[in-house]
């Protein structure tokens, strides 16, 4: 019962704040709405018993990416003209609606083999075991820093003063 209420509350907040991101005319406010959306999604993770992910969501998205976006908004202030739409508004809307419709139709018409096993909690040690074991995902974990390093170097090269 608690979960149900929590889900609906978080879902409504998340969807509304997401709508806020795309509909608000002020980019700064849109970015704040995005932060709210991220937090709501972190809550959704908690309702899914994904405590580690919820923490990571807060840390990475709310703590890092949002700040980055805010920084970018401020850097490009002098050319900001709000958040106008382009000519593709109507087609994009139709595609989005069709997407929701299709996925909903698909989800409702699929017989999901839902497992009755209760979810693990806490998940942190299990995830650590998976991530850092040879049988698990150690290779992707080792590749990920290379990706991040490349991204950092790329970003520096792109924005460096000539």
């Amino acid at each position: 019962m608690v979960l149900t209420i929590a889900f609906w509350a978080l879902a409504i907040v998340g969807v509304l704040s997401a709508l806020g991101v795309v509909l608000l005319g002020n980019v700064f406010r849109a970015s704040l709405s995005l932060i709210l959306c991220f937090i709501a999604i972190a809550g959704i993770y908690i309702t899914l018993h994904a405590d580690f992910l919820a923490a990571a969501q807060i840390l990475v998205y709310v703590g890092a990416i949002s700040i980055l976006i805010l920084l970018a908004i401020m850097l490009t202030r002098d050319v900001q003209h709000g958040s106008p739409s382009n000519k593709l508004r109507l087609p994009a809307f139709i595609v989005a609606i069709l997407f929701v419709g299709t996925v909903t139709f698909a989800v409702l018409n699929t017989r999901w083999q839902v497992s009755s096993v209760p979810p693990q909690e806490p998940t942190t040690s299990a995830i650590a075991g998976l991530l850092f074991s040879v049988e698990g995902f150690i290779l992707p974990v080792e590749i990920a820093p290379i990706l991040l390093l490349a991204a950092i170097i790329g970003a520096i090269v792109l924005v460096r003063e000539k």
Binding site: L48, P84, A92, A96, T104
Partner: peptide
């Protein structure tokens, strides 16, 4: 959850396709 995910995705898709501001 899946439908919530789809709705959020659709909102994001709409925004990605129809907004002019690159940051948005």
């Amino acid at each position: 959850y899946i439908i919530l995910s789809a709705v959020l995705f659709a909102i994001g898709l709409y925004g990605a396709l129809s907004k002019r501001n690159a940051i948005v």
